[in-house]
Design a protein around this nucleic acid. Structure first.
Length: 903
RNA sequence: GGGCGAAUAGCUCAGCGGAAGAGCGCGCGCCUUACAAGCGCGAGGUCCCAGGUUCGAACCCUGGUUCGCCCA
């Protein structure tokens, strides 16, 4: 009992081993244990090197989807790994208020009750949204816990809670005072359904089949000019016509005045190099109030602004006879009139991009309005510099290009939203129209002292507050210890789809307010798609619910299925086969653990696990022990190296191969002889090795499958000083003492011989229950020695009842009536009187011979090339020589065998 | 109009300068006392095309083709 100190009260009985892994019990048990013992709470005073991840806060619009499951699994793998490595880890959780989206879903729910927010009023509407937020925040945090997320829940944040709101006000005021926030009349994207402004990013462009209308405008003093447009209704807001200055077709028209059909408005004809001569007629109508490019062009030429479409997407009084009509109805009616009056020259089919609101998919209307903007250029420069000089690294690197391109072409960021759910803009206006911007409601106007102040009714873009997330969550604007220790955070893990929305803007704000990047590394992953490669979405009905998967197969299986086969930055198709594969792997591990535990009941570790480094290797290790320890060490090194490079999928693959193809397929099989018989000393050595490898493997597995690995690990025999939870156990360190190239190459021979024998058996469908007689003839003294020490291995794994091993002698004939195979180092015979089909045997050997001959020919050709010998690295030449020698041996022996058979 | 990604076994994908890989599927044989969610064996590939660089190319370069995505 003494050596089993530190036994957790939650530690399951090692002997209680149901035949299949009970993930429900394990998940419940370890979630509770970790929470109760505060395993994941970060301590800024520990003095350990910090490693911090701030969660990309999920929206409180709904529950988590597969993309979240992936995002958070990746974060958890990284944070658990670093925690085991001894870093002071902080994974800070939280949620996002998602202004427009949340307001939209709550409004939808109200509509179901026959209500709308206007009737309810701002205050009562917000109460409803807060209630919604409480409900979904709880759901989301619960889902994260179910996933196994090892967050420090004591620090949970919300973008709209008081500390974060204070940060928002501070930032707004600071930027305003620095002149980086301004208010002005500019063209913005307007969603008529949400009745709010949208940033360019929030508009999704979609190709539509539309029409290109060519309309003839009369010109004062005679003649006409024809313009092409995809949106004829906007002509009611035209204030000019533009042509290219070098376009000879229109040189004479520049400076004259066109007359707008229907309204007769006078439109100056201007020349501007922006105009594309190739498009349409080469002349364009200019509608500054309803097109961003026209807006700029209109400014350059002093053209007026005529707002023909209002915030409800209806035509304004400026539209004359069309006032009050919906924009779509107006188009139809107007086109009819133009045609009737002979102004419509032609209509052609035309594909063009139409902007849609990213939340409600309504067609966006560009229009001029008064909004708050963030001046982005001064913020973008430092954000680019930080990536350029490596203070922040983007993984995979190719996204740096995308990042730079966007920042180089960035436009000012409209941050006011005509919503109720969000951070109210800290700006007040007095009756005289003076503006006061402050972090708290001012008592009097800063300019005239009036106490009659009205706060701006608008709220800020959600991304404005998300941009502060890496430091607002750590306590800013207070100068907290958390900020000091954990900022800059270590890594940001998120999908590449919000590189601009979020990542770039966090860079702006972090650099402006902390004078330091918000994260050292940005790790971008791809999107989860369905089995057919389509994006998963609720509306499409192909979404999978991570919680349902957890209920069905367990969180570890879900996690593994998301991590394996996933490469950085690439989308991933997700299917039930992936889940099945992961579940099978979990089951495989459970059964390997069951086997181990069943054979370790009387074992107490005393030898060196890696946890106690520096101890000597125990005596009595056999080849198989040395081999598996060496392979384990290699796997541990590889997994570590790959995690370090964010290659989580590859790391998982290495683990999978090690566990399944080496530990289970070979080592466990080879250990059975000693565990089941052989005497106490040998048994003890096998137990020691098995324990050591399993214990270490559970540690390697833990970041990926925290519940299963913990559940197994807790059942394993343990030593004094072991941690109470695997989550805090040390990560396997590279242990040079375990490396054993000799054991690896010897086992390779043993495995090759075994496989060859199995192959021969399979050729004649010899079932494993029929023990066979096998003859091995080693072709070198080294091989003979190796095989002599491993004859039990071969006999066991190839189901040989009797096994004769000798040195191959020249001129020696083969055993009679035998199937034959050759591997480098050994001839293999399976004497099977009556079962040998001579023709088939010859065919098989000929095939082997052909393969070996091809290898030999290729190797010889390369070795015969003097350029190869002089230019290729020595190591490569040596390997090629070895290859040639082995192939030659195979060729000779196969030829000899065939000659014998043909006689 | 720019930019990015993908193209490798029937399917989904790794590999990204030194002998073509995995999972699933397929075929044959096995209830071999950890595991049939399993075990053994096997079949299956002009690594999209054309050039180039290199002693050596699935991998690097150039130019295409086909799909997907992002930005304007």
């Amino acid at each position: 009992m003494s050596s089993r100190a530190a036994r957790s009260p939650d530690r399951p009985d090692p002997a209680d081993l149901p035949p299949t892994y009970d993930f429900r019990a394990a998940e419940e048990r370890w979630t509770r244990h970790w929470l109760e013992s505060d395993t994941f709470r970060a301590d800024p005073e520990s003095g350990r090197e910090p490693y911090c991840i701030v969660i990309p806060p999920p929206n409180v619009t709904g529950s988590l989807h597969m993309g979240h499951a992936l995002d958070n699994t990746i974060q958890d793998v990284l944070i658990r790994w670093r925690r085991m490595q001894g870093y002071e880890t902080l994974w800070l959780p939280g949620t996002d208020h998602a202004g427009i989206a949340t307001q939209y879903v709550v409004e939808k729910r109200l509509a179901e009750e026959g209500l709308n927010r206007q009737e309810l009023g701002r205050e009562r509407f917000l109460e409803r949204v807060w209630a919604w937020k409480d409900e979904y925040e709880a759901t989301i945090l619960g889902q994260l816990k179910r996933l196994g997320a090892s967050c420090d829940w004591s620090r949970t944040a919300f973008t709209l809670d008081e500390p974060r709101s204070r940060a928002v006000r501070e930032v707004f005021v600071h930027l305003y005072r620095r002149g980086l926030i301004y208010r002005g009349e500019y063209i913005v994207n307007w969603c008529p359904r949400c009745r709010t402004t949208l940033a360019d990013l929030e508009v999704e462009h979609e190709e539509h089949d539309g029409k290109l209308y060519t309309v003839r405008y009369p010109v004062e003093g005679g003649g006409s000019i024809s313009v092409a447009t995809t949106r004829p209704e906007t002509m009611l807001g035209d204030t000019g016509v533009a042509v290219h200055p070098d376009d000879p077709r229109y040189r004479d028209q520049v400076g004259r005045t066109a007359l707008l059909p229907v309204l007769g408005r006078r439109l100056p004809i201007v020349a501007d190099p922006w105009v594309d001569r190739e498009f349409g007629t080469g002349a364009v109508k200019v509608t500054p109030a309803h097109d961003p490019d026209d807006f700029e062009l209109g400014r350059r030429h002093g053209l007026g602004l005529v707002k023909a479409i209002d915030e409800d997407a209806r035509m304004t009084a400026e539209a004359g006879p069309y006032a009050g009509l919906d924009r779509h109805a107006c188009r139809e009616a107007l086109v009819r009139q133009l045609q009737a009056e002979g102004h419509l020259e032609k209509v052609e089919p035309h594909r063009h991009a139409v902007g849609h609101c990213y939340r409600c998919e309504t067609v966006v209307e560009p229009l001029v309005s008064r909004q708050w903007f963030v001046k982005t250029r001064p913020l973008a420069e430092p954000a680019m510099a930080a990536v350029r000089d490596g203070r922040t690294r983007i993984v995979p690197e190719r996204f740096e290009k995308v990042y730079f391109h966007w920042l180089e072409n960035i436009r000012d960021w409209p941050v006011s939203r005509q919503l109720w759910w969000g951070h109210r803009i800290p700006a007040w206006t007095c009756q005289a129209g003076h503006l006061t911007v402050d972090t708290e409601a001012p008592a009097a106007c800063a300019e005239c002292g009036s106490g009659d102040l009205v706060q701006d009714p608008d709220v800020l873009d959600t991304w404005f507050s998300s941009a502060l997330w890496p430091f607002s969550t750590l306590g800013w604007p207070e100068r907290t210890r958390d900020l000091e220790v954990f900022y800059p955070t270590s890594v940001l893990v998120t999908g590449y789809d919000i590189l601009f929305f979020w990542v770039a803007r966090m860079m702006f704000m972090g650099l402006e307010f902390m004078r330091e990047v918000p994260f050292r590394t940005v790790f971008l992953h791809g999107l989860i798609r369905d089995a057919e490669g389509r994006k998963m979405s609720k509306s499409r009905g192909n979404a999978m619910d991570p919680l349902e998967i957890i209920e069905a197969v367990g969180a570890d299986t879900l996690r593994w299925s998301l991590i394996t086969g996933n490469t950085p930055g690439n989308d991933m198709r997700y299917s039930s086969e992936k889940i099945e594969g992961a579940r099978n792997f979990a089951n495989k591990i459970w059964n390997a653990a069951r086997f181990t535990l069943q054979n370790l009941a009387d074992f107490e570790p005393s030898g060196p696990g890696e946890a106690a480094a520096g101890e000597a290797r125990p005596d009595g290790l056999e080849l198989a022990d040395r081999w598996i320890l060496s392979r384990y060490r290699r796997a541990a090194g590889e997994v570590t190296r790959l995690l370090d490079r964010f290659e989580l999928g590859e790391a998982a693959r290495v683990l999978y191969d090690f566990v399944w193809s080496e530990l289970c397929d070979w080592y466990i099989e080879l250990a059975k002889a000693r565990l089941y018989g052989d005497g106490p000393a040998a048994r003890r050595v096998a137990q020691q090795t098995l324990w050591q490898v399993m214990e270490g493997t559970m540690r390697l597995l833990h970041p990926f499958m925290p519940f299963l690995s913990e559940d197994v690990w807790q059942r394993l025999p343990r030593r004094r000083g072991d941690r109470e939870t695997l989550a805090l156990a040390p990560w396997p360190a590279p242990d040079a003492a375990l490396a054993d190239a000799e054991a690896e190459s010897r086992m390779e021979l043993v495995m090759a011989v075994t496989r060859a024998l199995r192959n021969l058996r399979s050729e004649v469908n010899l079932p494993p229950t029929r023990r066979a007689y096998a003859v091995l003839r080693a072709t070198s003294p080294e091989a003979l020695a190796v095989l002599d020490g491993a004859r039990d291995y071969v006999a066991r794994l190839a189901a040989a009842g009797r096994l004769d091993l000798s040195a191959a002698r020249p001129g020696q004939g083969p055993p009679p009536q035998a199937l034959a195979a050759v591997v480098p180092g050994c001839e293999i015979y399976l004497p099977l009187a009556g079962l040998v089909d001579l023709d088939r045997e010859i065919a098989r050997l000929e095939k082997d011979l052909a393969a070996a001959a091809t290898t030999l020919a290729r190797a010889r050709q390369r070795l015969g090339d003097p350029m190869f010998r002089s230019r290729a690295p020595e190591e490569v030449v040596r390997r090629e020589e070895q290859k040639a020698a082995e192939a030659e041996e195979l060729v000779q022996r196969l030829k000899a065998r065939l000659a014998g058979l043909r006689d």
